[in-house]
Design a protein around this nucleic acid. Structure first.
Lengths: 340, 340
DNA sequence: CATAAGAATGACTTCGAATGCAATTATTAT
DNA sequence: ATAATAATTGCATTCGAAGTCATTCTTATG
């Protein structure tokens, strides 16, 4: 035993009267050891409280079994769920999550250094502040990367994304079917990839119905920002009959602002749609029409893609899109007549 | 370079024309190296893309710089915030989070084995399924543990907890000051420590005002469960004038149920209080009177206590309580008169 | 200029488990 | 019983960085 009184394979070997190799072999599956030795070793290990040292094992195996997950703490609402599910899927692959937070660009270098130092088997990036250059760094060190809800322009890195275009098309179709013609897009922060994807999804969908130049206001995904920017917009513009919000939290903020300060009704006067399918979206007062991301499948796909890359580094990068699921609430109604 | 084409200190040493020891010294602070050698080494390292291997360093240093954080995925709502902040504070101490999920008791052994194998420097446990025996196992291996919002009966392990008793006393005092006399406690799941602490806090506070035998219904912290159990309760019992909910999500559920199905007003007919201070609690329709946990300080304290224990293992276990912060909303009003 | 004191350097060993190889033992066939 | 084969076992080495120790090179001082 050493100073930290850790029990090593040598201690067990000594106690069991066998060699260190024998002890090691008992803990490696598929290696031939006689019942007798195995029992002696396990008995001694039990008595001494021996647990194989994963660090030493990593060094010799050239594989740590650790996956770096990079998140930004100011991420959108469904991140806890995503993280928990990622963790679960990674655990099922018998690997572990090493967590890194990346809040602004100047931490980038430090975080990457650390990830490289820890010799992780792979990286899942859930963060916006992650430039193409960074990805290259990992590539240089042969560390597979999967982006979550983010894609690079050249698709040189594997990604798993929700199909925001398709989701927004479903929402816009519903609004158009309800004869809406005057829209407002409430977008998320400009530096978020997801927000950008949803904004362009909304624009594309509207365009395909012939609506050009729809007005856009920018919030920061929060309830308060939604109320503020809608209030500011209402001061200077004619109100739309339908608001397309880039997430549910802002949609809820918009609904409250419409009802409390604009003194109008939802959905009778203004229809509102969101995105994400957070639990609050189904609460009595809101009952949002929204689209939920298939988080379970997306996280599962991300982990599978990554593990695949770890096992076969030559698999080319793939981008997997998952369709959102429409949740029809009660926040959309027929557009009020223009001449009312 | 080896098969994974990792660059080692030997490669750098060779390229720089110095010994491996020299390279190592360049990366250890406070060791004497001449400017000349340092420059040669850094130049070679830069060219080769050398990053010190943290795994090898761990092995020789007998310290991994990793903190195991154990969470249960079905944890309460503010877990993402807690996890993000924990991670931040841990990163500031120049350590890393290794994440483990513990959803039910039968995973306990596996998770503990893995944590021990990974030679983490310490453990932060945010989970209910964590028996006193488990803690003993870590003690046996000299791994410091800090419990978050959980304490052992014998206080043999350090804990950082929100003072739920004090928080509920503030809430109950407000209700009593508003002349309420008929209460209902809506408690969280029976197997959650936090839920138990809040239940007993509510009972104690009521008792101190002379109210005994307050009725209790049990939800699972969710919106739907709140609506269901309140609805079931209302079918068979006289309604209280005040409902004390063990978290904000249930308080919101209770409010919606009161308004939508019991056709009563909040706060005029029934007052409702919550706990947690989630962002939805301040939304227009709810404006809950609630108590928020000082998450920032609690997570900071947890990390500091743990790091302390890592550096000085003989520090005795301490339990630190943090007071909740009262948020006065608009969900409490004077109790309606009995003879109304 | 000689010498002591100090700084810088490299050879070698350590951390703990895994594995190729050679030696040994057990098993099977003859 | 004996040879032939297979199954175990232990020795020695490996993974990559860090630290001990002895040695060499500087620099300052009398």
């Amino acid at each position: 035993m050493n100073k930290k009184n850790r029990v090593t394979s040598y201690d067990v070997a000594h106690a069991a009267g066998v060699s260190q190799s024998a002890v090691s072999r008992v803990y490696r599956p598929g290696v031939s050891v006689s019942k007798k030795t195995r029992e002696k070793v396990l008995k001694a290990a039990e008595e001494l409280g021996y647990k194989p040292n994963a660090i030493a094992r990593m060094l010799i195996n050239q594989s740590t079994g650790m996956i770096a997950v990079i998140i930004s703490s100011r991420a959108n609402v469904n991140f806890p769920e995503v993280l928990a599910q990622l963790n679960k899927h990674i655990a099922e692959k018998n690997k572990r999550v090493l967590l890194f937070t990346l809040d602004d660009a100047d931490q980038l270098e430090t975080v990457i250094e650390q990830i490289l130092a820890y010799q992780v088997d792979g990286v899942v990036a859930l963060t916006a502040h992650f430039e193409p250059d960074s990805v290259t760094q990992f590539a240089k060190h042969n560390i597979p990367v999967v982006l979550y809800n983010r894609e690079l322009p050249d698709h040189s890195v594997s990604s798993v994304c929700c199909n925001h275009d398709q989701g927004l098309r479903m929402l816009v179709d519903i609004l158009v079917n309800h004869h809406h013609q005057h829209f407002l897009i409430m977008a998320g922060p400009k530096d978020s990839d997801v927000a950008r994807a949803r904004l362009s999804g909304a624009r594309n969908a509207l365009l395909s119905h012939g609506f050009t130049d729809t007005n856009v206001v920018y919030g920061d995904y929060s309830y308060d920002s939604a109320r503020e920017c809608l209030s500011a917009y209402a001061d200077k513009n004619a109100l739309p009959t339908a608001i397309i919000c880039s997430n549910d939290t802002m949609a809820i903020g918009a609904i409250d602002e419409i009802r409390e300060n604009l003194n109008l009704r939802v959905p009778e006067d203004i229809s509102v749609v969101g995105f994400d399918g957070i639990s609050a979206s189904s609460w009595h007062n809101y009952q949002l029409t929204t689209v939920s991301q298939p988080t379970y499948f997306m996280t599962k796909a991300a982990v599978e893609t990554l593990v695949n890359l770890i096992e076969s580094p030559d698999v080319p990068p793939e981008t997997r899109y998952w369709p959102g699921k429409l949740i029809e609430g009660n926040s959309v109604a027929a557009a009020p007549r223009d001449n009312e």
